[in-house]
Amino acid sequence: MLDAILAHYNYWLIIILMMIGLYIVISRGNLVKKIVGLNIFQTSVFLLYITLAKVTGGTAPILTGKPEIFSNPLPHVLILTAIVVGIATTALGFALVVRIRESYGSIEEDDILAAERAEEEIAVKEALS
C-alpha cells in the first residue's frame, strides 16, 4: 500500500495542482485571473512530464566521462520548447486583455457580456427604426 502511494504520490499532487488551475479558469470572471489559471495548469503539465523523466539514482543528463545513470533527456527537451511557446501564448493573451479593456472599459467577463448585449439591442432598434 505504502509502495503504491510512494510510486504515484507525485502524479497525484501534480494533478491536484492542475485541477486548481482548471477551477480558476472556469470559475473566475476576471480575464487576467483566467490567464493566471491557465499558466498554473500549464506549469503542472510541465511538472508531470518532467516527473515521468525522473530515474531513481539518476543525475542531470550531462556527460562527465564516467558511466552514469541519466534521467530521460527527451521530455526535458520537449518541455523546454513548451515553456517558450507558453510565454508566447501568454503574451498574446495579455495583449488581447489590454485590447478588450480599451474597447469595453472592463476586464470582467460579466461586464463585457452585458456590454455586448446592450450593443446588440441598440443595433436591433436602429435596424427596426
Binding site: 510541465f46 523523466a53 542531470a60 534521467s71 523546454l80
Partner: peptide, 19 residues
C-alpha cells in the same frame, strides 16, 4: 526548484527566467 530536484536543470533555468 522542483525541476532541479527532478534533475531537469535546463528546464529549471528556463522556467526561472521565463516564468
Amino acid at each position: 526548484g522542483l525541476l532541479v530536484a527532478l534533475d531537469a536543470v535546463d528546464v529549471a533555468f528556463t522556467e526561472a527566467a521565463v516564468g
